[in-house]
Amino acid sequence: MCGIAGIMYKNGSGTNPAGRALIDMLDGCQHRGPDSTGFALYGGERSGRLRLRFLVGEGEEADGAIARIQGALAKHGARVVDDERVGSNYRIQVSFDGDIQKLAYDVEHAAKVLSIGSSLEIVKDVGSAHEVDGQYGVGEFHGTHGLGHVRLATESAVKPEAAHPFWATGFADVAIVHNGQITNYWKMRRRLEQRGYEFTTDNDSELIAVYLADKMSQGIALKDALATSIDDLDGTFSFLVSTRDEIGYAKDRLAVKPMIMYETDDLVAVASEEVSLNRLFPGQALNTKEPPPGTYATWSRSI
């Protein structure tokens, strides 16, 4: 029950207005999901540095969560470079070169993690694209690529942690936005849990993220992981996935959930509806493409 959007600038530079582009695209399809809005933004990477973003709430609740986070980070030898509180979020940058999955599970037990990565930051909350931008300054974000999502909540409650994008818990820099429903969710989740992975929500989008991240951690290319996802996941879906260097999509064989894309020499943009793509190019007739059912593709930024 939602709208999705993704953009990648091919020049690989971190100065592209990715935040503003995603706000415009999501505003164009806000009718698909009025409850919450979220962004996965990539940029500002520095070697040996890790960015973490948490949902900590307000006041004393937030103070407690931040103390627990700092304790967990210290335990893993992560040194704080800088930190700030934005809205109900806590952003922190650390220098760290240990096992990210172990660190991630520990901090997850300390507070609600929104994202961990060398360049990824996930910003999501209840409200429209413009409201979330107003609270977190998404429009000022410049970077290489990103994903966005608007949500109409059905099965789970309207709260920030149930909004998309979802981070692949335990895997740095992997995020997903998804429109549809995975019907073999519990079967797939049990398989992944037996392999030691932890899930922090009951949302099927988190499952797709962990599924893909697991494949990539085995050395499988994102493109090949997307190919097997079409066979392994049952249900109706159009989803976008992003990593530090790539974005990709996969679409189920029944073609029930919409998706449309537009590519130029400079960028590729993907969205649920053409109306979002036209927000980037007002007044222009775009030569868009609708991916056929059962297909997938990836794009990389030049490094």
Partner: peptide, 12 residues
Amino acid sequence: ILGGDDLLIKVE
């Protein structure tokens, strides 16, 4: 109408 999102567009 394959979800609440499509349904909203249909109502409109």
